[in-house]
């Protein structure tokens, strides 16, 4: 027996205290009061550590509650017909479409010619070059001719990009404003997933912005959807799909987009 297990050994030999059950019950009952006292009275580093621990606990708790709630949801009424016709062998199955993010509704819409080019945000406010670029005025040569620009909006920069030498770099895309991932919503399934960006397909304001990878509201980006299990018409797993940015990333600090199917 390991040396440090003397308490267990003692319990095995002599049993627990006679009031053990009551003490543990009372301790558990006072737990809330104890936590509250700590939360109110701890100061300094201890308070910080305590708050951090409590925060993590609460997240865990919420998650668990949510799980329980999901489990308690009663199954759909038996006689209710599913929304889309499915063959007999798929009838009683739990909806397996959540992972599969292809909706025939949107596909049908795309079959019509006019709808082929329709996007969720059809009209976008243009961004002028004065707004987007800030002129760099540091350095003698650069200040004199003022040819260098800093992009003031969020951008997507490909993974293999290296900056040009200072002498040749006309546009600076600041590190702090670069994005790699977008929160992409599937319009019919109403699920949102964070997906890596593959590229900027089109920025409607200016072709130059497309080249620079500027992410503004209404920009069409290509995202990596391989995790979603979408299948192409030729029977292969789709990799990239287009999505349109729906928020103003420079205001929000995150990138929200809606998938174009």
């Amino acid at each position: 027996m390991p040396q440090n297990e003397y308490i267990e050994r003692h319990t095995k030999l002599h049993g627990k205290r006679l009031d053990h059950e009551e003490r543990t019950r009372k301790k558990a009952a006072r737990e809330g009061h104890k936590q509250s006292e700590n939360a109110q009275n701890l100061r300094g580093l201890r308070a910080k550590l305590y708050a951090k621990e409590r925060h993590a606990q609460k997240i865990q708790m919420r998650k668990q509650i949510k799980q329980h709630e999901e489990r308690n949801v009663k199954g759909a009424a038996d006689e209710k017909e599913p929304a889309n016709p499915v063959p007999a062998y798929l009838l009683d199955r739990a909806n397996p479409t959540s992972a599969k993010a292809l909706s025939s509704q949107i596909k049908n819409k795309r079959a019509e010619k006019a709808a082929r080019f329709s996007v969720p945000i059809p009209k976008v406010k243009g961004i002028s070059e004065e707004e987007l670029f800030k002129v760099v005025k540091t350095g003698k040569k650069i200040a004199k001719k003022s040819w260098k620009r800093v992009v003031t909006k969020p951008t997507f920069v490909g993974p293999d990009f290296t900056r040009r030498p200072v002498k040749y770099e006309r546009f600076i895309r600041p590190m702090g404003l670069r994005y790699k991932k977008a929160n992409v919503t599937h319009p019919t399934l109403n699920v949102t997933v964070q997906l890596p960006i593959l590229g900027v397909k089109k920025n409607p304001s200016n072709p130059l912005y497309t080249q620079l990878g500027v992410l503004s509201k209404g920009t069409i980006i290509e995202v990596n959807v391989s995790d979603l299990g979408i299948v192409t018409a030729s029977g292969k797993i789709a990799w990239g799909r287009y999505a349109q940015i729906t928020n103003n990333p420079e205001n929000d600090g995150c990138l929200n987009a809606v998938l174009l199917v």
């Binding site: 063959p87 798929l90 025939s104 030729s234």
Partner: peptide, 10 residues
Amino acid sequence: DLPGHEDEVY
């Protein structure tokens, strides 16, 4: 291999 369908084959 016969692709051609635009969606699930039932």
